[in-house]
Amino acid sequence: MSAVLTVKDLGISFGSNHVLKSINFELNENEVLGVIGPNGAGKTVMLNILTGILKPTKGTISFQGKEISHEGVTERCRGGIGRTFQVPRPFEQMTVFENIMVGGVFGAGMSEAEAKQKALEVADVIKLDDKLDLFAGKLGLLDRKRLEIGRALATEPKILLLDEVGGGLTESEVGLIINLVKEIKSQGVSVIWIEHIIRTMLEGTDRVMLLADGVDVITGAPLDVMNSSEVKKVYMGGGDDE
């Protein structure tokens, strides 16, 4: 299995605060890599670096064999790296259909006609095809999460970065998100999924990576990582995920 993304010695500092010291991992083709870690581990910061929002202090990022550390947000998005954010912020006065189109037009640089077709395809995947004409501001949390994923999918990503898309959902709703991620993977999209819900990591990922103290502590099969001494040590005494 070949790597679609390779991260080597990735680090970032804000003054004297070394948020990420040295992160090393590979994301394989057609793989879901889960990421866990305590509050302040730098998980979201890592996604911000991967998407070009933040520039690393050191290290390299190779996407499909090409070094992209120098590329900006737009270049990376149109090159095939899509993402969601922890708190969904749809354009509330626009319809579900229009929100998804935004991803196609502004994220992927599609024509309006292309974006319309892509929006219809994506709406079917995220199970919002029956709510296309509904204003996004009227959506419940689950559908807002689905729409957030949909806007990212409309950019036609080769890698999708998910930032706590299961947060705040009920147990049954989390199951629906797990199934959605599996369907996205089945379409050939590799996924990095940050989450604090253990079930999502055990049922929805192929491997799990633990981040703590600015480094990747352990990466492996989900159950092996969850039962590892490293995870027990990091989470001993509590501490919620960010």
Rank of each mutant, 00 (worst) to 15 (best):
S16N: 14
E26H: 01
N30S: 14
F25M: 06
E26Q: 12
S13K: 12
E29T: 08
D9K: 15
E31Q: 11
D9W: 10
N48L: 12
T44G: 10
N48K: 15
G34F: 06
M46T: 14
D9I: 11
N24H: 05
L54H: 14
G34V: 09
H18L: 13
I12V: 15
G52V: 09
L33M: 12
L54R: 05
G11F: 02
D9N: 15
S13T: 10
I23C: 04
M46L: 15
V35N: 01
G42D: 05
N28P: 00
E26Y: 00
K8D: 12
V45R: 00
K8Y: 05
L47E: 08
F14T: 11
N39G: 05
L27K: 06
V19E: 02
N39K: 07
T44K: 13
G52T: 08
N39E: 05
L50M: 13
L50S: 06
I23Y: 01
N39C: 08
I23E: 05
L10F: 10
T51L: 06
V32E: 04
S16Q: 13
I36H: 03
I53C: 00
G40L: 10
V32Q: 01
N17L: 15
E26K: 10
S16W: 08
P38G: 13
G40W: 08
T51I: 12
G52E: 08
V45K: 01
V35G: 01
I23G: 00
G52S: 04
L50Q: 07
G40P: 03
G11M: 05
K43R: 06
N24C: 12
K21S: 12
F25I: 07
S22P: 00
L33Q: 09
V19P: 00
S16P: 03
V45D: 00
G52R: 02
T51P: 01
I23F: 01
T51C: 06
G42C: 06
S13F: 00
I23D: 02
N24E: 10
N17R: 12
G40Y: 06
K43D: 03
K43P: 00
L47F: 15
T44H: 13
N28W: 00
V32W: 02
G52C: 04
S13M: 02
D9A: 14
F25E: 06
S16T: 14
G34N: 05
G42W: 11
N30P: 01
F14H: 08
G37C: 10
H18C: 09
V19Q: 03
L54E: 13
S13G: 02
I12S: 07
G11Y: 04
V35E: 01
I36M: 05
G37S: 12
I12G: 05
L10K: 10
L54G: 01
E26T: 09
I49P: 03
L47M: 15
L54F: 15
H18D: 14
S13H: 10
A41D: 11
F25G: 02
V19S: 03
F25T: 04
E26D: 14
D9L: 09
L50D: 04
E29W: 01
I49K: 07
M46Y: 01
N24T: 09
G15D: 13
D9E: 15
M46S: 11
A41L: 12
G11L: 06
L47K: 04
G15Q: 10
I53T: 13
G15A: 09
L27F: 12
I49Y: 11
V35T: 02
K21I: 02
L33S: 07
N48G: 11
G15L: 11
K8R: 15
